[in-house]
Design a protein around this nucleic acid. Structure first.
Lengths: 238, 238
DNA sequence: CGATTCGTTGACGTCCGTCAAGCTAAGTGG
DNA sequence: CCACTTAGCTTGACGGACGTCAACGAATCG
């Protein structure tokens, strides 16, 4: 069984066995972090790179008016701050949305990957560029679609990303309605109403405060979701 | 007089004279591009890197419903596709919003910079990370603020970015109201109404289809604009 | 069994979209 | 010089998506 980082970077169709072996060395020592705890805060100057092994985290900002917009969702295999040493300090926070397991990777290890493992280096570049592409797609989502399509589109993206690292099972999303609203720029009340309507239409099922997708392809068409922007080169069946 | 690329990268406070000399070699051969023309299209696999020398361009997508959301504005000194060779193809278009001057830089030149000029390489990393930070801030802008603050915030960002590359003079923005609306996710009609109200309040002046800012600091406070996310380390007065 | 968090529902208001018409400025060709 | 066209700006009427405020239920937990 590959480790989660190798499973993610394999989507870039380039790694050899020696690269995967090298990645295995990175993810041995993890620690748990409880839901609601912060991984990094705005203004921090982190000295290690954080990788999500398990759970869901988010990038978020704190606004003067109390708003707490979520600007990215991080799932297993995602880096929190791969290149942040370039910038003097974090311009946003990263917090755990569910109970997580995190790995701290010393910067020297990353430098070693970038200089001595060119295939891994290119794969890390790929991951960074995909993160940027996701931000652009979120802008399109928020600017152009209405709440039901926004929600559907976000769920499609997350299921696709989970699937790309071999995590098909959690076909349920562990986000509160308030967190979902903070991600999409709508209020929790409206999120609730739209979710209820989508459930009535059979697009979603809501069980135990989790969102289940009974028919992915139907939700995909409903939401105008096209996964090209995720640049998953690898043949999709895991 | 420094070239525009050196002026931009100097914001990262790291370049030596030899770096600036090297950058000078890159920007000799430019060509004009008329407003409305595309620089790159979705699906393209560009072989050269494009740099904006003059004018304003934008990243945009084309939606099935005819929408044309703008997901980034590119000003002089900005790269269009610095690292796109990593990804198999463009997932969006880049078009000229005004008449532009563009430089094509062969990929080999970029590779040379990245391997033989470590300070320039770090500065290019910095520029990439700032682009990402801008995308996050746009998400906050669209998700959390209403149209008048959105417009004010975007204008503050653009004036700050122009100023950071020594272009204080064009204190007028050359965007049509429709382009402004496509950038912020609102209709051209609503953009017009809000601009008119902001003009009535003295926050903006509209002359010759351009937007003038009579009091930057007042607009900054009105829009809750904080330039930290642009990571302009250099002392700001140019 | 309170306390807390999250989900649910209702009433009401507003920001913004939609549709439509008319206006201005600039360019084109007769 | 004058239609004519076109792109962009302006304005009005109307409706809908979404926000706000408020109360209540449901689940979890110490």
């Amino acid at each position: 069984m590959l480790n989660i980082l190798a499973r993610k970077l394999r989507n870039f169709n380039l790694l050899h066995q020696e690269d995967i072996d090298r990645l295995d060395e990175l993810v041995h020592v993890s620690y748990p972090l409880a839901s609601g705890q912060d991984i990094i805060r705005q203004g921090d100057e982190p000295h290690t790179v954080h990788l999500i092994l398990d759970g869901v985290a988010c990038r978020y900002k704190l606004l003067p008016n109390g708003g707490r917009p979520i600007v990215a969702l991080l799932i297993p295999g995602d880096f929190c701050d791969l290149h942040v040493a370039i910038l003097s300090q974090m311009d946003h926070n990263i917090g755990a949305l569910t109970d997580c397991h995190i790995v701290d990777i010393p910067r020297a290890q990353i430098e070693d990957l970038l200089t001595n493992y060119p295939r891994i280096a290119r794969a890390l570049w790929w991951a960074t560029l995909v993160d940027e592409a996701v931000l652009r797609e979120w802008l399109v989502n928020m600017g152009q679609r209405r709440a039901d399509r926004m929600i559907g589109h976000l769920i499609c993206e997350l299921l696709t990303r989970f699937s790309a690292v071999g995590l098909d099972h959690p076909f349920s999303l562990p986000l509160t309605q308030e967190q979902l609203g903070d991600t999409l720029g709508i209020t929790a009340v409206h999120t609730q109403r739209v979710l209820a309507e989508m459930r009535d239409q059979g697009l979603l099922a809501l069980e135990n405060r989790a969102i289940i997708v009974p028919d992915f392809d139907r939700l995909r068409r409903f939401s105008d979701f096209n996964p090209d922007y995720l640049h998953l080169n690898r043949a999709l069946p895991y």
